[in-house]
Design a protein around this nucleic acid. Structure first.
Lengths: 167, 167
DNA sequence: GTCAATTAGTTGCAGATGAAACCAATGTCA
DNA sequence: TGACATTGGTTTCATCTGCAACTAATTGAC
């Protein structure tokens, strides 16, 4: 890292833009790091990617869901849900069962193998989170999470969000 | 959103996993929202995407940089830098000049048109950030940013990071 | 009851992305 | 000096992603 500055075009306004302090940039970087770190943990160990993990997590938490519900709960585009569920289904981790009351939608649920997988991954995920926030005081984390909630909620509406879509 | 719970497979351990409270998930969502909102602002208005914006921001801040420096400063994979610089170059916003001292690397800098573009976008970006954090107290933001820094730094090392790469 | 509008979910397609291969230039070490 | 490793940067290729179009089923208006 040798900046090699010659003509800093910024710094004329009262408040200059510095990318490494710019909030959208920082949030995007930390979000990317989170995904990458977590993805490596159970990606290499279980052959699961992030969308698949989210599907499994929601099913492990709520039991039985439609694809639409999964998308809404896990903030995933419906095509991503469709593909993740398809892959998990062919691998035998989830089952699909038509809803007889509304035959457009399908109930997705964990199979026994899927439940075992969830029982393996969930503790790892929680342990990872613990290791990540170790040493940060409870009060600081409370403030952090409160602000994070505000930013998330506001971010959903700030630029006219359509609703879903996720990396 | 109708969870339709039947058999909540979780909640057996002393600490159940709830995805909407899971930090990596939350950070990834807010990061995505940040990118999307910001990307729409100057994407629709200037035809610039996020990687290109990051390149311009760094050049506007530091003046003249090699592609390698841009990648390190802006946390971008070198192929992404290469493509962003290539596109910005053909559009006349940046110039490339070989370094005569080390002819492997190339100096990238904003052209006059690029500087004008930066002068237009930077205030918009700052205003967007202000609108986003409006109403949050200074003390809360200080705590938030401090924790964010810790999480970012730790996230870089937690799962054996290679260094670059970015969405 | 019928037809238009809506919804759940899948698929085709075009663009974005990163790993790996690659090229040219520089550094290193004998 | 001469081999070999390293580095800056580009390109190829396989994959992922989301938009748009599509099918099938349901709802609503009349």
């Amino acid at each position: 890292m040798k900046p090699m500055s010659t003509k800093p075009a910024a710094a004329e306004s009262d408040q200059a833009l510095r990318l490494e302090q710019f909030l959208p940039y920082r949030l995007n970087v930390v979000g990317f790091l989170a995904s990458r770190a977590l993805g490596r943990i159970y990606g290499a160990r279980f052959g699961i990617d992030i969308p698949q993990w989210r599907v499994i997590a929601q099913l492990g938490e709520f039991g039985r869901l439609t694809s639409r519900d999964i998308g809404e709960l896990a903030q995933m585009h419906k095509t991503k849900v469709s593909r993740a569920v398809g892959e998990l289904s062919t691998r035998g981790f989830v089952s699909r069962a038509a809803n007889r009351a509304d035959r457009r939608e399908t109930f997705i649920a964990l199979t026994p193998a899927g439940t075992r997988l969830y029982a393996q991954i969930a503790p790892l995920a929680l342990a990872f989170q613990q290791r990540w926030i170790a040493g940060i005081s409870g009060e600081e984390m409370r403030v952090f999470e409160r602000v994070l909630s505000v930013l998330t909620e506001r971010g959903r509406h700030l630029a006219g969000g359509s609703g879903d879509g996720q990396s």
